[in-house]
Structures are given as C-alpha cells and as structure tokens.
Design a protein around this nucleic acid. Structure first.
Lengths: 139, 139
DNA sequence: CAGGATCCAGCTTGATACTG
DNA sequence: CAGTATCAAGCTGGATCCTG
C-alpha cells in the first residue's frame, strides 16, 4: 500500500503546481483541459484502443469493434481525433467506398500513456466499485 | 519523433489486447470505462490536482481554487470522488461548519499517473491545437 | 460502404433560493 | 461555512432517413 514505484510523490506534486500554475486559472485559456477531455472521451478511448491493438481499421470494422457506439458518434469521434492529429483517415476513391483509419505517431504515444492508466483502472476498479457500494449502503 | 521512452509499443499493444479482451465488449459489464470516465471527468481532475498540489483543502478553498466551477458541481464531484474512495471528507461538528478534503492513498496513486498524462498533454496540446486549426482552414 | 442531416428525449449543468 | 433543493436551459447522444 505504501510502495510507490512512481515518479515520487514529491516530484508529482511539484509537477502539478507547475501545470496548475501555468494556466491562468481560466480553464478556457489552457487548452490542456480541452485536449485531455477530448482524449479521455467516452468513445475516443475505445477507438484508439482498438486501432492500437488491431492496427488499421475501416469504418464498419471500428463500429463493430466498439459495442454500443452509434454511427453518429463514431463519425464525430473520428473527426475529432483526426482533427487533433491522433489518427489518419485514408479514403480510397472507389465504389463502394473504403476508408481506413490508423493512429499517428502522436496517437500511439498518447495511447501508450493511456494504457498505463487503463491498466491501473483495471486493477483498481474493483476497489473503487466496492468503495461505491459501501457508500450506497451507508446511506 | 521516433524515440519512445515508453513501455515499448509492442508491450502496449499486448496490454491493450488483454484489456480489451477482458471486457465482454459490453461497456456496461466492464467497470473500467466507468471508473476512468469518473476520474477523467472535467472537474474531478481539477479537484484532484488541487488537492494533490495543495494538500488538505476546505470546501470554499477548493471552490476558489477551481475557477469556473459551480457550488453544485463541486458538491457532486466531491461526492463521487469520495464514494470512489479517492478522497476523504472530514467534517468538524462546529458552527460555522468546517469540512476538509484530502486525497486517499488510492487517490494519490491515480493522480501520479494522471500527472504523467497531464504533462504529456501540456507538451503536446500546442501540436494538437495547431492540428485542429489547420483542419478548420482546410474546410 | 461510409457517412451527412435532422429530430428530439434525456442527462448535465448553472443559477437561484433556502438551511443547519 | 457547507451544503440541499428546485427549475430551466443547453448540450449530448441515439434513432432514423437519406446520399455518393
């Protein structure tokens, strides 16, 4: 419980102050919030995870890989990610159309960080969920 | 651009397949999505960042630290984080009331991971924003 | 196949007023 | 001080229909 094999708590704290201090408190001014929000978006994560693990995918392949996503949201999500430079869209001019999506170098880099977080979430989700259940009962 | 000082792309890919495979595709079944979403929530991050960098804080102190947050959302966010076991709420029975919030060990651990991601976002937000601007023009 | 466009229900959120 | 309660507005996201 006490072992931290991470960038040391103190270093993290320092980094935090740096990051927080960097933004003039106005959330709008600092794009980090916005960027992170886009990236940790409900569907964005799934899109990137699937592209990361399966490589290049077509629109329908992605849709089938991500259970529950609507065509609209996949479109929107893909556009955002493409606009943010995290994935590339390659359209083949042919009938029927064929469009392929793949992560960019930046996308892969982000995903690697995300994997760490996902892994942590996987490990700790049980604890968190249990904690929530306990709170519910307490009410 | 090509340097990756990260858990190696191949390892990340493997991990991804593991994580994706673990969940039966049904987003509802896998709590990881839900957990991550709570944690990367718009306000949750700010709350945890402030607690992480400033230590124990009172309700109003938090509200003042996080520009733009409403009293309601702060309440909701704090409840969620407390229910998830990421922070503790200590109420002193006195008039006027005094309530202090602080991260738990789990909270600190998560925050340390988050810092890495935040740092990455800070470094790359410029690139991403620029990419977006370019896309806008392309339209 | 890969979307674009539209409509609308529902959740999220902010503003406001009130309380122990 | 630290919330709770309520209501209205706005955005999100799903369903549906349509196109090159």
């Amino acid at each position: 419980m006490e072992t931290n094999r991470l960038p040391a708590a103190s270093a993290a704290k320092k980094k935090l102050q740096e990051i927080i201090g960097r933004k003039p408190r106005k959330a709008d001014v600092c794009p980090v919030k916005d960027v992170l929000h886009t990236l940790t978006d409900k569907w964005s994560m799934f899109v990137m995870m699937n592209l990361g693990s399966q490589g290049t995918l077509r629109f329908t392949e992605l849709k089938n890989s991500i259970d529950g996503i609507s065509q609209k949201m996949l479109t929107v999500t893909l556009k955002n990610l493409e606009a943010s430079g995290l994935l590339t869209r390659t359209a083949y001019q042919q009938i029927p159309p064929k469009v392929e999506y793949a992560l960019t170098a930046v996308g892969v880099e982000f995903l690697q960080h995300l994997v760490v977080l996902l892994n942590w979430a996987c490990t700790n989700s049980a604890i968190i969920v249990k904690s929530r259940k306990k709170m519910e009962r307490a009410v």
